[in-house]
Structures are given as C-alpha cells and as structure tokens.
Design a binder for these strands. Structure first.
Lengths: 144, 144
DNA sequence: CTTAGTGCAAAACATTTGCATCGGT
DNA sequence: ACCGATGCAAATGTTTTGCACTAAG
C-alpha cells in the first residue's frame, strides 16, 4: 500500500531531486484523503496540523507529483486548479456541478466505443481524452 | 447571413438590455473572424481599428453573448478563457492530432445519450460539455 | 429625465518569481 | 561545503468591482 510513496521516492532518486521532509509531508497529506483538492486547501489542512509549508513549496511539489503521475490536474473552473491523487485509480470522467462544489465521477463504456469509431474512421490512434460535463442541479421551480 | 446579429438584437430586446454601439461593435469584431480568441485579443484588435472599448465592457458583452448562445467558452489553459463564435453550429467536439496541426471535428450521438443517462441518474441538468480526444496518425507500415 | 451601461482604475485572486536562508547530500 | 529547496513577500496577469459620467430608452 506504500507503493505510491515508493514511486515518489524512486522518482526523486532517479531525477536527482532531494528527498525533503516537506515533499513527503505534502505527499502524505494528499494520499491520506480521497477528495479533490486545490493548493489552498492543502495549505490550510497542513497549517491546521501545525505542519508548516509555504504555498510555493506546495506548487513546486505538485509539479513533481504530476510528472511521476501520482496526481492528476483538473481545470474545472477558470480560477482554481484542482488535483486528485491518481495512483491505482482507474480512468474516469467528471461532471462539474455549479453552485455546489460537487464533482461527480463516472465511467461510461460508450466513450470507449466513440473512440474506436473515430480511430477506424480517421486511421488514427487515440492516446487519451478529457471529458467534462457541466451541470446544475435541476430545481422544480420555474423561472421566466 | 445577418441572422446571428438579429438573434443578438432580439435577445437584448427581450431582456430589456440596451442596444449600445459598443455591444454591436464587439459582436461585429467577433463575427468577422473564425479564430478562437480571448478578451485581450479582442481588446487589442478593436484598439487597432481605433474602436475604443474598455475591457470591462468586453467582459460584460461576453456574458451576454454566452447567454444567447452566440459564443462558446473554452478553458484550454488555466490562465486565459478562450471563446469562439457559435451561431447555428451544433455542439461539436474535437480530436487533436499530434504531429500535424490537424483538428478533426466530429459529432457523435452517443455523447447525448451519455448526457441523458447522467442527468437521470443524478437529477441534474447538463448545460454543456467539453470533450477532446488526443491522437496521432497510425502509420500503416511500421507497427511496433 | 432615468438609470443601465461605460471607462477607468483599483481590487481581487491564484500562481509565479526573486532572493536570502536553510539543510540534504 | 555546495547548491538545490524553502519561506516569504512582491510581482504577475486575468477577471471583477466601485464609482462618476454618458447616453439609450
């Protein structure tokens, strides 16, 4: 279960980056939870726990974790970059719900079939995709 | 061919918004071109042509044009919001092909059906989506 | 005449950067 | 001891906001 951290450790090793306590503390904080998060949330959670890291260091570490595929980056809205841990999690897509900070994750096989159709039709090889649905909660109230 | 502008005019009319020259000038600038753009580009292009509008007014107008579906909004990167005109075009998606500056546009009904499934399952109303496939040309000869 | 819309500048905001200090190696 | 990494604060760049003025209705 410590495989993710081991991956991180190896990555730092191989790239010749230093294994600082801050980097592992940030890693631990991220991997201790399953929710999506942004840098500010991480900063506040760590501050709460009296673990002092600067935002600059968090931003730096996010870059490292992205490069070794231990987190995924999302741009749900224009003002905040969100992340999620990604070790051992399967590919999924997202529905961003307005007016509630909710993000629904889903996985639908029809996407794979669309992909196959496109590959055949255009003689291409699709490596990956990004799909976001943007929604709001359907309210029973009417509006003019 | 002036239908898009007519749509805008009607929208303003019905909502009781004023038909200011700035709004139509911005509309014209957008509809005179086919490229994706951001607010700053629009601002500079209009300045170039000696048409003086403030950025604030452009931002305001973008909101109006979005509401009457005359433009679409994209968040390709975290730092700039991009737009494209959208009159009469149905929602289309893109396949970005590497190694050639090619972008394939397509529209697949299965996306609509995925959307419906999600709306029913989560009691939400999906307003729009963004879907990008990233591909490369599959070479017929060399095949690892 | 009324008041929505405008331009301008300042504010807000997330992220980046510069620099002195700290600490992994 | 060296120099990469850190913390802090200032800088950056986009979008929003406040306010006095202009002009659409």
């Amino acid at each position: 279960m410590d495989q993710a951290k081991q991956t991180f450790r190896l990555y730092l090793q191989e790239k010749g980056f230093r294994k600082t306590p801050e980097r592992f503390a940030i890693f631990d904080e991220i991997y201790a939870s399953n929710q999506h998060f942004d840098v500010e949330l991480l900063y506040l959670k760590m501050k709460e726990k009296k673990y002092r890291v600067s935002r600059a260091t968090i931003y730096n570490t996010m870059e490292l974790l992205l490069n070794c595929n231990l987190i995924r980056k999302h741009q749900f809205s224009r003002n905040v970059t969100q992340y999620e841990k990604s070790f051992g999690t399967s590919q999924h897509d997202h529905v961003v719900v307005a007016d509630s900070n909710e993000v629904i994750e889903f996985c639908d096989p029809r996407i794979e079939s669309i992909k196959k159709t496109l590959e055949d039709k255009h003689k291409i090889k699709i490596s990956h995709h990004t799909l976001y649905f943007y929604a709001e909660k359907s309210s029973p109230t009417s509006n003019t």
